[in-house]
């Protein structure tokens, strides 16, 4: 059975992920929030703008900070999901190859409100190209700021690198413990995956596109 994205999206959406008696959403071994895109966008673009205005030479560093947050997100969120009983029940039966871990996770993310991801190209252990439409980051950016010269989907961009690192670098298929040590080991490897956002709606492209490849360590 191949990955059936529609079934996964409808099932995850139908799980009714909402606060329990304590007002918390424990799921996939995590505490989730159904948070405001406006909040993430304001604080992310706000800190980026402040740092760049005050120290333009720190632009790359500021982007790196937001990318690091995205790597942490991917490692724990995607890793937690791919290690969960919910994954075992819903996605695992559809998996026929390691690449299906990538496709299956992408289908789950399509139920999270981040926009619609589509795998355009996946070369095992080598390269991933993903298209994203209705990105909450780029659409949120354009609500508050003029069109930009550079990409703005820092979370999605870092998240795609994180996904490839989990599958091919950290071997999430073996269900390792998602420790800080493993995070450092995976992401500081000189040949780990990094992503670049080649197209971004915030700079006028029709959609966003991410290219994930190994660094040339």
């Amino acid at each position: 059975m191949a990955i059936d994205e529609r079934v996964i999206v409808e099932t995850v959406t139908g799980m009714g992920l909402a606060g329990n008696e304590e007002g918390l959403i424990p799921a996939f071994g995590l505490y989730l929030t159904n948070h405001y895109a406006d909040f993430y966008n304001r604080i992310s673009f706000g800190v980026l703008g402040a740092l760049v205005r005050e120290n333009p030479e720190l632009t790359e560093d500021a982007v790196a900070l937001l990318t690091e947050a995205a790597h942490v997100c991917a490692f724990h969120t995607f890793g937690g999901i791919m290690s969960s009983v919910e994954w075992d029940a819903l996605v695992q039966p559809m998996i026929e190859s390691r690449e299906d871990w990538v496709r299956g996770m992408m289908a789950v993310v399509n139920a999270f409100g981040w926009g619609r991801f589509r795998v355009a190209e996946l070369l095992p252990d080598e390269r991933l190209v993903v298209e994203l439409r209705d990105s909450y980051e780029s659409s949120g950016y354009l609500e508050s700021y003029p069109r930009t010269d550079g990409p703005r989907c820092f979370l999605a961009n870092g998240g795609m690198a994180g996904l490839m690192n989990l599958v091919y670098q950290g071997d999430i298929t073996r269900r390792p413990a998602l420790t800080e040590e493993l995070y450092r080991e995976v992401f500081s490897d000189p040949r780990s995956f990094r992503s670049r956002e080649r197209l971004c709606a915030a700079k006028g492209d029709s959609h966003c596109e991410f290219v994930v490849e190994r660094m040339q360590g």
Binding site: T33, N34, Y136
Partner: peptide
Amino acid sequence: RRLVFHCHHYNVFLQRT
């Protein structure tokens, strides 16, 4: 307004950043 799911690891890491 748009809602997006995120976990506590990202929320507190981004805040700390």
